[in-house]
Amino acid sequence: MKGAVLNVDANGAPVDITAKSSAYLPVQEACIHKIKHVEEAGVVPGIREEFVIFGENDDDLKPEVNPIVGANKGGVVALVEDLRAFVVSFSQVSTVSP
């Protein structure tokens, strides 16, 4: 969902998602690389971006996987908004249900 970064702090950034309360983007989820401050990932007050929001309970932390359409030498490929996208490496895939 679209959101606007309200400000930044040492641990991340609150994001206005036009809901009852704001969401929070932790620094460790702002970038695939290890960073110390969200600004290193381009997250600054006022920036408007699309964010993926997960709830607080375990069920909400398991997003639906889009239709798997294939694989490459690195992992699984799925359709995301009609585009082929690499979604997970084979080392992260399990055939056992949690």
Results as ranks from 00 to 15, higher is better:
88 V>L: 09
97 S>C: 09
58 D>P: 01
55 G>N: 08
83 L>F: 11
43 V>P: 00
84 R>V: 08
52 V>A: 09
10 A>R: 14
9 D>E: 13
75 G>F: 06
79 L>K: 08
50 E>D: 15
23 A>S: 09
1 M>H: 07
39 E>Y: 12
51 F>Q: 04
22 S>C: 10
56 E>N: 07
18 T>R: 14
85 A>I: 08
9 D>I: 10
10 A>E: 15
76 V>Y: 04
76 V>R: 03
86 F>R: 07
96 V>T: 15
67 P>L: 05
7 N>T: 14
34 K>C: 13
67 P>M: 03
10 A>H: 13
71 A>R: 07
49 E>C: 14
24 Y>P: 00
7 N>Y: 14
90 F>L: 02
40 E>I: 12
4 A>V: 14
65 V>L: 07
40 E>P: 11
84 R>A: 10
40 E>R: 13
10 A>S: 14
14 P>Q: 06
57 N>D: 12
10 A>Y: 12
92 Q>S: 02
16 D>Y: 04
19 A>S: 10
24 Y>K: 00
80 V>Y: 10
13 A>R: 05
66 N>V: 10
38 V>P: 02
98 P>S: 06
96 V>W: 08
92 Q>F: 01
15 V>S: 03
50 E>C: 14
45 P>E: 14
32 I>K: 11
68 I>L: 05
58 D>G: 01
36 K>E: 15
29 E>I: 04
71 A>V: 03
18 T>K: 15
76 V>Q: 03
12 G>S: 08
40 E>Y: 14
51 F>R: 03
92 Q>W: 02
46 G>W: 09
42 G>M: 10
61 L>H: 07
23 A>M: 06
43 V>A: 01
9 D>T: 11
40 E>A: 14
6 L>E: 13
44 V>E: 15
94 S>R: 07
72 N>V: 03
67 P>F: 02
82 D>H: 04
76 V>I: 12
74 G>A: 10
86 F>K: 04
32 I>E: 12
12 G>T: 09
17 I>Q: 08
63 P>Y: 02
31 C>D: 15
23 A>E: 05
34 K>R: 15
94 S>V: 01
